[in-house]
Amino acid sequence: MLFVDKYRPRTLEQFQLHADVADNLRKLVVSGDCPHTLFYGPAGAGKKTLILALLREIYGAGVEKLKVECKPWKIELPSRKLEVEFATVSSAYHVEMNPSDVGNNDRYVVQEIIKEMAKSRPVGIDGQRGFKVLVLNEVDRLSKEAQHSLRRTMEKYSAACRLVLCCNNVSKVIEPVRSRCLCIRVAAPSLQQIEEQLGRVAASEKLSLPPPLASRLAAGCDRNLRRALLSLEACRVQQYPFTDDQQVAAPDWELYIQEIAGDVLREQTPKQLFVVRGKLYELLVNCIPPEIVLRKLCLALMPKLDDELRHSTAQDAAFYEHRLQEGSKAIFHLEAFLARFMSNYKQYMISLGL
């Protein structure tokens, strides 16, 4: 079992990074008040772990008896019949799903799932919690239509179904949805907290972790605890006993983005843009989020540019990231950003006489 799963807190009492948030959630459950909840914060901060611990606090160990289903849904619309198929993770008390996977049909899927859950209420442990919980991941990736339809559905079925929403960027969730939820911010852990957690995991595994290596693991994970634990396990597989100067291997997709940045800096031609397009497709096919690809590309290019180009590159990256959120084909906007950068870079080099 991976360290990430082996040392994941199972209950709210076991939380150390977000002890104050966990205590408030426990008080909420004890009081019997369980409103719609919105957890937001950066990746690897512990949102999903908090949600699972909250469900266990409400319903007990029964929420860990999970089943994964991938079944087709037939939704009757006024003008047509919609058939979609997607995966859900469910127990007797809750359903977890990612509605953004179905694209523009997300609003119909969310409504249908909530209606289905409202038909059968679970028998609560104490006979009072007669509602199911629907966990929606990546709510910030839902279309605006889906979020607006969610607003009305939250009110209509609140007696039989409570929603737990999870997202990275709360600014992409519309205000009417946020106002109907208890918003809980899950902050990214500090570098010191990550080092302490790595030390605890290493001690539990009877590993000797040198402080310099722990510092590099914490500094290279971008305050993402999940990534830090995965890097620690990768270092153990690579070499053990650990050494002070042991290298921390970067993920393959990050190295690939570094390679793309080197390609566009080396040559600015249509042929090179065609080659880079194929590499961008490969990243997207391997499920690397396009927003992360664009951000990492910009960060990889910045250190190799003069001050005159850094401002325009950051401005272009912000422009195309906004277009990326509004558009439907990520490859168009990623390629447009690189094409704009290559054009600006070539003109700048010509102006210098190089």
Rank of each mutant, 00 (worst) to 15 (best):
Ala188Arg: 06
Lys172Trp: 02
Ala234Ser: 14
Ile113Val: 15
Val102Thr: 03
Leu297Ser: 07
Val30Lys: 15
Val95Thr: 03
Leu2His: 13
Cys235Phe: 09
Leu273Phe: 05
Lys346Gly: 00
Asp307Tyr: 10
Pro122Cys: 03
Asn224Ala: 04
Lys271Thr: 14
Glu138Thr: 08
Pro241Asn: 06
Lys156Phe: 11
Gly62Pro: 00
Asn169Met: 01
Leu198Ser: 02
Tyr157Gly: 05
Phe131Asp: 02
Ser190Val: 01
Gln347Lys: 15
Gln192Met: 07
Gly124Gln: 10
Ser312Arg: 13
Ala118Arg: 04
Leu265Thr: 06
Arg340Val: 15
Cys34Lys: 01
Gly60Gln: 07
Arg185Tyr: 10
Ser351Arg: 15
Pro241Asp: 03
Ala250Gln: 11
Ser215Arg: 15
Ala218Ile: 04
Asn286Glu: 14
Met342Glu: 09
Gln239Ala: 12
Asn104Val: 09
Asp140Phe: 10
Asn105Tyr: 09
Asp23Cys: 00
Leu82Met: 13
Glu112Thr: 13
Arg340Thr: 15
Val275Trp: 08
Leu301Phe: 08
Lys296Pro: 00
Val164Leu: 13
Leu283His: 08
Ile125Tyr: 03
Gly353Met: 02
Val63Arg: 05
Val201His: 07
Val102Ala: 06
Arg310Val: 10
Cys70Arg: 14
Arg223Phe: 06
Asn224Ile: 04
Leu229Glu: 05
Cys70Met: 09
Leu82Ala: 11
Val84Ala: 06
Arg8Lys: 10
Asn224Tyr: 03
Asp244His: 11
Val84Ile: 15
His311Glu: 14
Lys296Ala: 08
Gln247Met: 08
Pro99Ser: 11
Leu301Tyr: 04
Ala219Thr: 07
Ala249Asp: 06
Ile113Thr: 09
Val63Gly: 05
Phe86Lys: 06
Met349Asn: 13
Asp33Val: 13
Trp253Asp: 08
Ala92Val: 11
Thr313Gly: 07
Ala330Asp: 07
Gln268Gly: 07
Leu163Gly: 02
Pro290Lys: 07
Val30Ile: 11
Ala87Glu: 13
Leu255Arg: 15
Glu64Pro: 05
Ser190Tyr: 02
Asp101Gln: 14
Gln14Asp: 15
Ala146Val: 03
Val4Glu: 09
Thr11Asp: 08
Asp20Thr: 09
Gly62Lys: 12
His94Asn: 08
Glu175Ser: 11
Arg226His: 08
Val63Lys: 03
Val123Ala: 10
Val285Leu: 14
Met117Glu: 09
Leu2Gln: 14
Lys144Met: 12
Leu136His: 07
Trp73Cys: 00
Pro176Arg: 02
